[in-house]
Amino acid sequence: MPPRFKAFSPLFLFLLALALMSAYARNPKGPTSEIAQTLPLMILAPVNSGLNYVADEVENVWLNYFALLNANAENQSLKQTVTRLRRRVVELEEDRKANERYQVLLNLKAQNPKEFLAGRILAWDPGPWFQAVAVDLGSRDGVTPEAAVFSDQGLVGRVVELAPNAAKVLLVTDRSSGVDAFIQRNRVNVLVTGLGAGRLELEYVRKGEDVRLGDLVVSSGLDGIFPEGLAIGVISQVDNAGLGIFLRAELRPSVDFSSLKEILIRPTNPSPFDWTQLGPAVLTIFEKKVSRPRSR
């Protein structure tokens, strides 16, 4: 190594690190920032896949050979659960058919796209500042920035950075996350934001709105990122007593992030809500309400 390089390398590296940070501060989506952010992810994603493979094999051996001691009792319990769930499936099937009929009536385009990509979580961000994960789907699988990520339990987050073979997902519990949503019971529109450390809160809900403990909050689809009707969380705390015009409410996330392994990604974002798709009957009602003169 030439002595001149040895002498100047610290200064050069300090300047390089500062240059990377200032490039990000100027334009977080610029090419320099994107390459510097996605290159380590692209390199380490296969390492994480390998580690996951080894961990899964060890887990399989454990589950298949050592954890079958109470299998018989568990089998009986599961049979009862299956019977109960079958009955529930029939009920839900009836609800789905009814829902389809209502959608036809309203002439709404079905908001349930068939194409989702199934992926796995590669690794969790262990740092204290952000709530993020890496997943094994990337741009070559068709994932786009800001794509919605969810699981069978509900909303997980959105894609913030993309490499060809992996993506970084900002969880809904991160402090910079926000989701337009409504309370399922009474359709009160709310904004759900992350509090960090696996917690969520409701914002801009006026005191006096009907918000109760145990209410399920679902995505509204109006933000153009998340599909409609995904479970976000259950209201676990409501505080009406503080100062100000808004109440304070916390949610318990629907997704159990500590056991989350598989995720679904909607590769492209839904287009913004198209009001022209509303049926003429609904539009007529809407116009009547708008044009109705206010009584004094």
Binding site: L13, F14, L16, A17, L18, A19, L20, M21, A23, Y24, A25, P28, S33, A36, Q37, L39, P40, L41, I43, L44, A123, W124, D125, P126, G127, W129, F130, A132, V133, A134, V160, E161, K168, L170
Partner: peptide
């Protein structure tokens, strides 16, 4: 080494590149 390890440290979070290196 510090610069190199720093580049990899933030690979899972949306942190600015160069932060951990610095």
């Amino acid at each position: 080494g510090a610069f190199y390890f720093g580049l990899f440290q933030g690979y899972l979070s949306p942190t600015p590149p160069g932060l951990y290196s610095l």
